[in-house]
Design a protein around this nucleic acid. Sequence first.
DNA 1: AGCATACACTTGCATATTGCAAGTGCTTTG
DNA 2: CAAAGCACTTGCAATATGCAAGTGTATGCT
Lengths: 145, 145
Amino acid sequence: MTTREKPDWNGCPTRYAAGIVGDKWCFLLLRDVLLHGKRTYREFLASPEGISTNILANRLAKLEGLGMFTREPDPRKASSVCYFPTQKARDFLPALISMMVWATRYDEVTEAPATFAASFAKDPAGTIAWYEAEIDRVDHALRAG
Amino acid sequence: MTTREKPDWNGCPTRYAAGIVGDKWCFLLLRDVLLHGKRTYREFLASPEGISTNILANRLAKLEGLGMFTREPDPRKASSVCYFPTQKARDFLPALISMMVWATRYDEVTEAPATFAASFAKDPAGTIAWYEAEIDRVDHALRAG
DNA sequence: AGCATACACTTGCATATTGCAAGTGCTTTG
DNA sequence: CAAAGCACTTGCAATATGCAAGTGTATGCT
């Protein structure tokens, strides 16, 4: 790889974010891990969008490399692997929820409950805390075996 | 195009958002129009990420089709074109700013001022209102000729 | 009017990324 | 010890991207 003038996607905050979530598969994996309690390769693979195995492996490695996921053996079964969200990923929750609120407003066939946007508007910190608690619950239960 | 089982990216709010900003170029165009006051093809093209002309034209059409941009003749020069953010795009501001706050925290070489995240945390509505006012200012000045 | 310039694309083509199907190697289970 | 589960790899065709060059229209200048 040769030296380039403007090789990095750091610096500008939007560009930094675009380098991570400006990819639909990373974006959806973040949803699965933060909102749907998914932690294993099989669970991610089972999402309705139908990611293919090579792309899944590639994105899991990318997210691990970016410090969003940690890769650990599954306590329930040594041959399996779990991916846990890091603090960096968890801190992305407010941004993810903001986008969902926006999507809920403009997607005419949204599946989000009508109460979702209202409760986030009313109590953002409380809504985020609720999701954080869910993440804690999933991770703690898993790590306890 | 044949009938498919799960063809649409609507429904799930995260998937809906991913269909729009889960593409780095759309993401950066949104930044340019919402935060940097850019409105013309030439201005978008001049961004430091170096989008190529075919991709720019493709994404401008995509964002227009998604109801994020309107395409209008430039009042200053009839042969030019302006792209204005719609209300849908403007309503994306809180999500965009949330992502920038997150990026500012985790990008070690961020160019964002240290005060940025703090002022958004202190007064989210006020920060968003400030950006909205900037957008109004740019659009009004342009449309007035 | 005639010529040059600016602008917003469009086209062609080489390269890079993606998606699907099938396979690989390791581990656990019966 | 054979079968099944799991997390990937690999091969290859399809798609998307990047770059350079070209196109058509609308000014601006002389």
